[in-house]
Design a protein around this nucleic acid. Structure first.
Length: 226
DNA sequence: TAGGCCATCTGGTCCT
DNA sequence: AGGACCAGATGGCCTA
């Protein structure tokens, strides 16, 4: 039952909250920041996160014996309606030798465990990126989770850069009472960073239309036609 | 009912 | 050799 609640659609309020948090920069300025930019964000927490995941992965890998895993696998396969009945008499593994079959089952279990670890990591990611975590809100899909996380990181990096500029500006002995320079405009005008924060009148479609480059499937819930 | 999302199986490839 | 990683295929579940 809790799962069904999780699968309910994201409400418009949830989208509004999400878009206000991320803004245009979150979905827009990914260009030029591909994976080929190593060292761009040398963040220690990321390293800790990775090491934590590795530890978790090893931990989960050692939770079950292979026998436990096989028993668990068969049960889970039936529950999920696995397409290939690896333990059925007429299944694809039926013709193979016992050794081959055993090896195949072992590989399947490993792959399943690997995917579960991956999903656990995605759950961890969902837990730390800002979106509506209410039980009445549908869980973010995998692709949406990754895209939101990427844009959230980019947005945080941008905010950090702006903060550094502000600190540098203040260190020059300038008074804040003087007009805010253009370089610091985002701090004086929230809409420069969060274009939706002051646009309560904007339609859902208008907001969605600003997310160029984001797969339209992420906004299936949007009932407004642009 | 079509489309999206997901879990699982499977075979191939690469790495240690 | 064994394990990790990857991509394709398949079928189930859910929603519009």
């Amino acid at each position: 039952m809790a799962e069904q609640n999780l699968l309910k659609s994201i409400s418009n309020d949830a989208l509004l909250d999400l878009t206000q948090r991320y803004g245009q920069s979150a979905f827009g300025f990914g260009a030029g920041h591909g994976p080929g930019a190593p060292g761009r964000f040398p963040l220690t927490p990321a390293t800790d996160f990775l090491s934590g995941q590795t530890a978790k992965s090893n931990e989960s890998g050692g939770e079950h014996t292979s026998d436990d895993e096989d028993a668990f696998d068969s049960l889970e396969s039936r529950k999920r309606g696995a397409p290939f009945g690896d333990d059925k008499p007429g299944g694809p593994l039926a013709k193979k030798s016992k050794e081959q079959r055993s090896l195949r089952l072992s590989i399947n279990a490993r792959e399943r465990r690997r995917m579960h670890d991956l999903n656990d990591a995605l759950d961890g990611l969902r837990a730390v990126i800002p979106y509506a975590h209410s039980p009445s809100v549908r869980k973010l899909s995998k692709i949406a989770t990754l895209l939101l996380a990427k844009n959230y990181i980019l947005m945080q990096a941008q905010a950090l850069e702006e903060m550094r500029r502000l600190v540098a500006y203040l260190n020059q002995g300038q008074s804040l009472s003087s007009p805010i320079p253009a370089a610091l405009a985002p701090f004086g005008q929230a809409t420069a960073v969060y274009p939706f924060s002051g646009s309560a009148l904007a339609s859902c479609a208008e907001k969605c239309s600003n997310f160029s480059g984001t797969p339209s499937t992420l906004f299936k819930h949007c009932n407004d036609k642009p």
